[in-house]
C-alpha cells in the first residue's frame, strides 16, 4: 500500500516541479508587467515636474502635447537660482533642517541611551510616552502652539511669530520622539556584555555612550538623522502658520505662496522650484537608500 503510494507520488511530483517552474516564469512576467504599470503611476508626477521645468512659458500655454518638451530650456532654473528670494527660501530651509537635526540628535541619543540601558524609576512609562508623543500629529498642536508663541511674545517682548528660528524649537516635537524610539531599539539590540565590559574597565556612563554605543549603533544613528532631516525639510503646516514675511519662509511654503501670484500660476517656475525643493531628500535617498528604509521599518519592528 505504502509502496504504491510512493510510486504514484514519484511521477506526479516530477510533473508538478515542471509546472511550478513554468508557473514561476509566468508569475515573473506578470510581476514585471504590473510593476511597470505601478511604476508609471508612482513616477508620473516627478517626471512631469521635470518635463514642465524644462519648458518656457510660451510652450506651457501652447496646446501642444504636454508630455513632451519641444524646445527645452533651462531658463526656469537660471531664473530661480539667481533670484534672491528663492535662494533665501533654500537657505532658510537648509539652516533650519540642519539645526533641527543637530538638536534632535543631542536630545534623543542620550535619552535613548538612558531609556535603553539605565532602568530607572518610570523609564518604561517614559519610553511608552515617547512613542505616544510620536503619534500626536502636527495638525493637533499648531493652534495652541501659535497662541502660546503669541502669549510668550507679549510677555517677554521677544519676537517669535514670523521668525524662522522659532521653527528650530518647534520641529523637534516631530523628530525627537521617533528618533528616540528607533534609537532605543538600536541600543537595546547591543549585547549587554559590551557595556558591562566597559563599565568593569572603569568607563563612565558617558564614555560608554560615546565610545561603544554610538559607534556600534551608527547605522541607526544615520537612519535617525535622515529621518529628522527629511521631516524638517518637508514640514509645511508649522511654517505656514508661524511665518508670513517673504524673507522668513521655508521652501515648501515659499514656493506655494510666492510663485502663485493672484490667479496667475507660473507653472514652469513652480515645477522647477518643487523639483529643486525635492532634490535634497531625493539625493540623500539615492545614496543612503538602505538606511532610509531601515529607519522607515524600524518604527514598527523594533522596540
Amino acid at each position: 500500500m505504502s509502496t504504491l503510494a510512493i510510486d504514484k507520488a514519484g511521477p506526479s511530483r516530477k510533473v508538478r516541479y515542471g509546472s511550478m517552474s513554468r508557473d514561476r516564469t509566468w508569475a515573473l512576467r506578470w510581476s514585471y508587467f504590473f510593476l511597470v504599470l505601478f511604476a508609471i503611476f508612482f513616477l508620473t508626477p516627478p517626471i512631469y515636474m521635470l518635463i514642465t521645468s524644462l519648458k518656457g512659458s510660451a510652450e506651457i500655454s501652447a496646446a501642444t502635447n504636454p508630455w513632451w518638451v519641444f524646445h527645452p530650456t533651462l531658463s526656469n532654473y537660471v531664473e530661480l537660482l539667481t533670484s534672491n528670494q528663492f535662494l533665501r527660501f533654500f537657505w532658510n530651509s537648509s539652516i533650519i533642517s540642519i539645526t533641527v537635526v543637530i538638536v534632535t540628535m543631542l536630545i534623543s541619543v542620550p535619552a535613548a541611551f538612558a531609556l535603553a540601558r539605565m532602568k530607572f524609576w518610570g523609564s518604561a512609562t517614559l519610553a511608552t510616552g515617547v512613542f505616544l508623543t510620536y503619534l500626536i500629529p502636527d495638525s493637533l498642536l499648531f493652534i495652541p502652539l501659535f497662541k502660546m508663541l503669541a502669549v510668550i511674545q507679549e510677555f517677554t517682548g521677544i519676537t517669535l511669530l514670523n521668525r524662522w528660528y522659532v521653527l528650530v524649537f518647534i520641529y523637534p516635537t516631530l523628530t525627537v520622539p521617533f528618533c528616540t524610539w528607533i534609537m532605543i531599539g538600536y541600543f537595546a539590540s547591543i549585547p549587554k556584555e559590551l557595556d558591562e565590559a566597559a563599565i568593569i574597565d572603569g568607563a563612565s556612563w558617558l564614555q560608554t555612550l560615546l565610545r561603544i554605543f554610538i559607534p556600534v549603533a551608527l547605522p541607526g544613528l544615520i537612519a535617525a538623522t535622515i529621518f529628522a532631516f527629511t521631516v524638517s525639510w518637508a514640514q509645511f503646516l508649522y511654517p505656514l502658520v508661524f511665518t508670513t514675511s517673504v524673507d522668513q519662509l521655508v521652501l515648501p511654503v515659499g514656493i506655494t505662496t510666492t510663485l502663485i501670484k493672484g490667479d496667475v500660476f507660473n507653472w514652469g517656475q513652480i515645477m522647477t522650484g518643487a523639483l529643486l525643493g525635492a532634490a535634497p531628500p531625493l539625493i540623500i535617498y539615492a545614496f543612503l537608500m538602505d538606511y532610509y528604509i531601515a529607519g522607515l521599518t524600524a518604527g514598527a519592528t523594533k522596540g
Binding site: P45, A274, P281
Partner: peptide, 13 residues
C-alpha cells in the same frame, strides 16, 4: 520615490 518627495512639492505637481 513618492514617499521621499516632500508632500507639499509633489502635490504641486
Amino acid at each position: 520615490v513618492p514617499w521621499v518627495i516632500p508632500p507639499a512639492m509633489s502635490t504641486l505637481a
